[in-house]
Design a binder for these strands. Structure first.
Length: 431
DNA sequence: AACTCTAGCAACCGCCTGTGT
DNA sequence: GACACAGGCGGTTGCTAGAGT
């Protein structure tokens, strides 16, 4: 409190004609605002100052009312049920806090956002997946049992494979997944690890991991207002695409980036799996995306075959940070002993998308590394690990690849039941 | 007791959309 | 269509309490 700024009171423009207090609200201010709302109702927030004498800008008043003074607000920490619901909602819609808030009566978007950010931070430190392991595991099993092909996953996609008119955006309702029962085990894992102990774990667990670009298939329902920023990014066909054009790309199971780049996901990003998979619906991290500032570890080079890449770009992280350890996929390798999770990598949605673009005909061996890579739906690169003696323990570089062509990927899209096939319609995920 | 570190939370900022003129 | 305004949204920042050293 005490800070004062000039604010026009309308939106984000500032003027010198009015001064507004900033900082924490006092109870006196709260009473003024409550009295105003009682009398005039909520809305027309820029009139608050005029009618109540409050020296707060309209936006601040609205925020205070919505987040703290509204009578229907639920106080206290999130219940298990609410937490599970948040997980479900985030899995299905990403960082759409306001929309999530409509599904959680008494909770505000800010509250949910803070809750999620804190949770993600905690899980990252633990090396735990953002989404319950059981759910991802079962999704992967379902995919394997349904025989998703991977033999086309060479990571090399042509321009034609991304022609926008050739892809349908599959609709996917995460209600197929019942997370509730899985979450309990997951939560108990978390509860068993005091937060204060987190940083005492092997530091390598907390190193940046590999993040991917896998967009949620969430299709917003009709509503008065649904905002999707039109972030532009280089379009495969040349030029730049807006989100409208890119929608199909977000649903495309490719991950494209530049070797040697790092993606360090912000804690509130849409993690579709865990600390190693990153997706931000509003800010897709496609190669060359406008807002992509941090280097990425997603090591695709469309000019090279995967094998070439592996040899030519071996251990990209090693070149950058020799003692940086990435969590590996337990499906492929043994789980690092320091990792408390059976799955240190991948996430449910990445599983879904990893499989979504694959035809269903050949190479259905569930043990196939290619299948497993595809199920993970993202690049995994295990970097060289410096042991205590200072020796680098080079691990295998794993790279997930999407279908080579659109024809291959569209097969499953056009089948119309790709998600049911992946998840197994008759599977009971609550067990 | 002093200090450090972290989680949790409140609030702000900038961008955006919807609406009215 | 252009503009201004009001309000909504997501991302970020900064403060504080509590735990650990």
């Amino acid at each position: 409190m005490g800070k004062v700024r000039h604010d026009s009171g309308s939106g984000d423009d500032f003027a010198v004609d009015k001064t507004f207090h900033k900082g924490p609200w006092t109870s006196a201010e709260d009473q003024l605002l409550i009295a105003y709302v009682d009398k005039h109702g909520d809305g027309n927030w820029n009139a608050v100052q005029k009618h109540s004498g409050l020296s707060r800008c309209g936006k601040s008043c609205r925020l205070r009312w919505v987040n703290h003074l509204r009578p229907d607000l639920k106080k206290g920490s999130f219940t298990d049920k609410e937490e599970q619901r948040v997980i479900e909602l985030h899995a299905s819609m990403g960082n759409k806090w306001a929309r999530m808030a409509t599904e959680l009566p008494g909770r505000t978007d800010n509250e949910i956002k803070n809750f999620w950010n804190t949770r993600v931070k905690r899980l990252q430190r633990l090396g735990l997946p953002i989404y319950p392991d059981e759910v991802r595991e079962q999704a992967m099993n379902a995919a394997a049992q349904n025989g998703h092909n991977t033999d086309s996953l060479d990571g090399h996609h042509s321009q034609e494979s991304l022609e926008p008119d050739c892809l349908e955006i599959p609709e996917f309702d995460f209600k197929y997944l019942q997370l509730n029962n899985h979450s309990s085990l997951y939560q108990s894992m978390l509860a068993s690890v005091p937060s204060a102990n987190l940083m005492r774990q092997k530091p390598s667990l907390f190193q940046p991991n590999v993040y991917n670009v896998i967009e949620s298939p969430y299709t917003p329902p009709n509503r008065k207002r649904f905002r999707e920023p039109e972030t532009t990014f280089p379009y495969p066909g040349g030029g730049y695409a807006t989100n409208d054009q890119s929608a199909e790309l977000w649903n495309y199971p490719y991950v494209e980036s530049t070797p040697g780049q790092f993606n360090v996901a912000p804690p509130d990003s849409h993690f579709l799996g865990n600390a190693t998979t990153y997706s931000s619906p509003s800010e897709p991290l496609f190669h060359g995306a406008e807002k992509l500032e941090l280097p990425s570890f997603q090591c695709f080079d469309t000019q090279e075959e995967p094998g070439d890449w592996e040899t030519q770009h071996s251990n990209p992280m090693q070149a950058i940070e020799s003692d940086n350890t990435l969590v590996q996929s337990p499906l492929i390798h043994q789980t690092p002993p320091e990792c408390p999770s059976s799955f240190c990598d991948g996430l449910l949605e990445s599983v879904v998308y990893g499989s979504s673009g694959e035809k269903q005909t050949t190479n259905t061996d569930p043990d196939s590394p290619l299948l497993q890579h595809s199920l993970l739906g993202h690049v995994e690169i295990t970097t060289a690990t410096a042991d205590t003696a200072g020796h680098n323990n080079a691990e295998t570089d794993l790279v997930h690849f999407g279908p080579t062509s659109l024809d291959e990927s569209r097969t499953s899209f056009e089948s119309g039941d790709w998600i049911r096939q992946l998840l197994g319609e008759d599977r009971d995920y609550t067990k």
